[in-house]
Write a protein that binds this DNA or RNA. Structure first.
Lengths: 337, 337
DNA sequence: CTGTTAGCGCATTCAT
DNA sequence: ATGAATGCGCTAACAG
């Protein structure tokens, strides 16, 4: 249905001047008579003129928009990161296109197409838990579109990344459990393909070793992060001959599910089994007992990622840098430990 | 930095044919020799050609993208609606630009500019709690860009809307409290400007009246939905000469905050004071006691809103329809009542 | 300071 | 079945 949209030609005609002058007045060019400029601006406002970014993007070969692809955004901290990133982008004059992959590789693939079609100037990416083929990301690289990974990063690609110190965060969490007197600390980890899984697991092991506790492979479980499967593993833990006395979960959704299942099984938290999560989701402060967790600097992640992306966009292809920024975490001790 | 992006001219040159033919082959035109088409498609794939939607949008005067503006999306059901809407849009061949207003009128205003600049073919809108000037929405109308309101709708504009039956949902919630034997049911409502506030309050009053309970203005509080202020009102309720024995909250975030504050004040829920919310947020199932609430058909809201929007886009401006679709709610009884 | 011209990438009309 | 020419709305290089 869409009506005729006002163009600079409409303004030029009504004012009896050329469209070039209108264009210059609108873009704030120097060489335009004050009087002319005012008339143009006034009429543009009156007609509710809005520039057509398609033609501008076509000329400039830059859309002044960034893309962000997150694995999901209904229950996690990703919305917060998006908000922070969007704010930072806007301050630099960029809009942002948001896409969520629903933890599906296929959807992630489709999302990269959307970014390509919209000719974004750069993309922020956090992978799905399924992703282990990276061709679609490399396409960006081949086309000279900078990307920055955050949180769920692709280890094998040499591009800028923003992560939190997963190793250290996990270490502190487990050290805390040990200092609470826990001796058999289990770890419910994520897919071995995800870097965060490896890093957090390494921190977990390091803490055990530092305090002379045995690393018992029976107490380390990897799962695909489908919350509904947590039940399987909690049953496994509870049926072990020697039950664990604490569980360090890969993330808060997992930890929250653990707490609910332990309560349902009448296991006392933290007395019989303590629980610690990772990421400080809102629900962790709500649940009872409240969840001890490792807090990530959400806003800083979003801001830093955008900053790295803009750096790449402004830089010549020759002198690309691929720094990995590691942000500090912070242990929040609550009642589950 | 962006490299040269592949265009149909690159393909045409490499194949020694005209760009028109390439264009036709790519768009699946009839009149292209099978042999030619195959060669074009093969080379396009090899070069990772991606069509430039800017030039297409420029010609077609349609961006094949929809916009969605939500008041916030970190702790509510809006992310779910967005996901549902995005899915429905995609099935119809539309991409979607997401914007969140952070409950700020100013940001909402800026978001409408973004939509205008991106020349979206239509916009889904849920207003901020602050919005009481609607000029920015009317701009869409003036430009012939269809809009559909959902959840937080603008009552004074005659456009399609998708809402839930707030009146009925509130009525059922309060009726439930009454049947639990509650006699002094308070209502912590939202801003009087929001339609949902009015509707839910009306349902609340209707239920009281139906069961012959007095409507006590002292027990009805309007607040601006800033969660931090809930504390003020709970203190007010607790210090009343005759305390309420139940509170019906305008939404789940409010109800969840209420539960936490009541627990902190050592008030027994639901025995001394029962609590009921509205919207069935995830945290309501986590908190203890779990929250009785009114569930909204989230996916259906998103899908219906997109459907109404596409209807308007396909229709001639002459025969616009402005239906208000009212979806049914469902009372979920848990332990807080 | 302002008008004219060209061209961004593509779909489309008109030729052939 | 294919090529050439035109134009979407705008900016920028070139004239004046």
């Amino acid at each position: 249905m869409a009506k005729h949209q006002i163009t600079i030609i409409d303004i030029a005609n009504q004012l009896g001047i050329s469209k070039s002058t209108v264009s210059r007045a609108l873009t704030g060019h120097q060489s335009v008579h004050q009087h002319t400029r005012e008339k143009v601006l006034a009429l543009a406002a009156e007609l509710e003129y809005e520039k057509n970014m398609f033609s501008i993007s076509l000329i400039k070969k830059s859309s002044k928009t960034l893309g962000i692809i997150v694995p999901e955004f209904s229950r996690s901290f990703f919305p917060q990161i998006i908000i922070a990133a969007q704010k930072a982008a806007k301050e630099a004059g960029y809009d942002m296109i948001i896409a969520q992959s629903n933890e599906s590789y296929e959807t992630e693939l489709a999302n990269t197409k959307v970014m390509l079609a919209h000719r974004v100037d750069g993309v922020l990416i956090s992978m799905t838990r399924e992703t282990n083929n990276y061709d679609h990301f490399k396409t960006f690289h081949r086309k000279g579109i900078p990307i920055v990974f955050f949180n769920r990063v692709c280890e094998e690609m040499i591009v800028p990344k923003v992560v939190v110190d997963d190793f250290d965060g996990a270490f502190l969490a487990v050290e805390h459990l040990i200092k609470q007197g826990k001796k058999r600390i289990a770890h419910l980890s994520g897919p071995e393909t995800l870097a965060v899984s490896k890093k957090r697991k390494a921190g977990y092991i390091k803490a055990l070793e530092k305090y002379g506790l045995p690393v018992d492979e029976d107490l380390i479980i990897h799962y695909d992060l489908s919350i509904s499967k947590v039940k399987i593993y909690i049953n496994y833990f509870l049926n072990l001959e020697k039950r664990p006395d604490a569980i360090f979960a890969i993330n808060d959704p997992t930890a929250i599910e653990l707490i609910q299942l332990l309560k349902a099984a009448d296991v006392k938290i933290p007395k019989e089994i303590a629980v610690v999560g990772f990421s400080n989701d809102f629900a962790g402060s709500i649940i009872e007992p409240s969840l001890t967790t490792v807090e990530q600097p959400i806003n800083e992640i979003g801001e830093t990622a955008v900053k790295l992306l803009l750096d790449q966009i402004d830089r010549e292809a020759k002198d690309w840098k691929a720094p990995t920024i590691m942000l500090k975490t912070n242990l929040i001790i609550r009642n589950s430990s």
